[in-house]
């Protein structure tokens, strides 16, 4: 990852969403992007230049654009039409983004489009985030890594976020994953946890 005086940046053409520039690099705001927050917390798995990424819950393409700056290719899956319009606009300018309009919980639909990926990144607001992750693990290379941004409030607003995290970890270990690291994204994002796991 590229840091300039403690500021996380990515190299690429700016002006995607009005992000500030620093020495010709695009500042990647941890308060806006969970992935940036994850790196600011000082840990884990770094994006590699030759990585192929499957990005579930691409939304408006804000974080996607930064991921695309760092990696070889990003398969960006988004379901809702409104954010998809923005994602298409981002992907039109960045040739290594493949925008897929599909439901992440039904990978069989977009399976014929996908190649094996090094990183499965997930940021979806769905009660069944863990189920979606395990259904998409089929795209991961054996050496691949999954990074889940767990929205505990989307899973269950009424339970304690800590309990939701514990339960999600247990369910992940039951499926195809081995947990490597978990952390809360405070102070950047409330009730969001990052879970880094490898394929079993």
């Amino acid at each position: 990852m590229i840091w300039i005086d403690g500021v996380l940046v990515s190299e690429g053409k700016g002006g995607v969403y009005g992000e500030k520039m620093l020495r010709n690099c695009r500042i990647w705001d941890p308060y806006r992007s969970k992935l940036a927050a994850y790196y600011h917390k000082g840990c884990g798995h770094e994006l590699q230049k030759d990585d192929v990424v499957l990005y579930l819950g691409a939304a408006n393409g804000t974080t996607v654009s930064h991921v695309a700056d760092y990696t070889e290719c990003v398969y960006a899956v988004e379901f809702a039409p409104r954010p998809m319009q923005d994602l298409l606009a981002v992907a039109a300018k960045r040739k290594n983004i493949v925008p897929i309009m599909a439901d992440a919980s039904r990978p069989e639909w977009y399976a014929p489009l996908l190649e094996p990926v090094d990183l499965l990144y997930m940021d979806v607001a769905d009660p069944d985030q863990i189920g979606i992750a395990s259904r998409n693990s089929v795209f991961l290379k054996q050496s691949g890594i999954a990074l889940l941004m767990l929205k505990t409030r989307s899973i269950d607003v009424r339970s304690d976020p800590g309990d939701v995290l514990a339960e999600s970890i247990a369910r992940l270990e039951e499926s195809d994953f081995v947990i490597q690291e978990t952390m809360w994204l405070l102070p950047y994002h409330q009730d969001h946890a990052a879970i880094l796991c490898a394929k079993k």
Binding site: P81, M84, Q85, L88, A91, V98, P99, I100, M101, L113
Partner: peptide, 9 residues
Amino acid sequence: CFFIAEAKI
């Protein structure tokens, strides 16, 4: 992918 997404939108 662009074709499909634009048609769906």
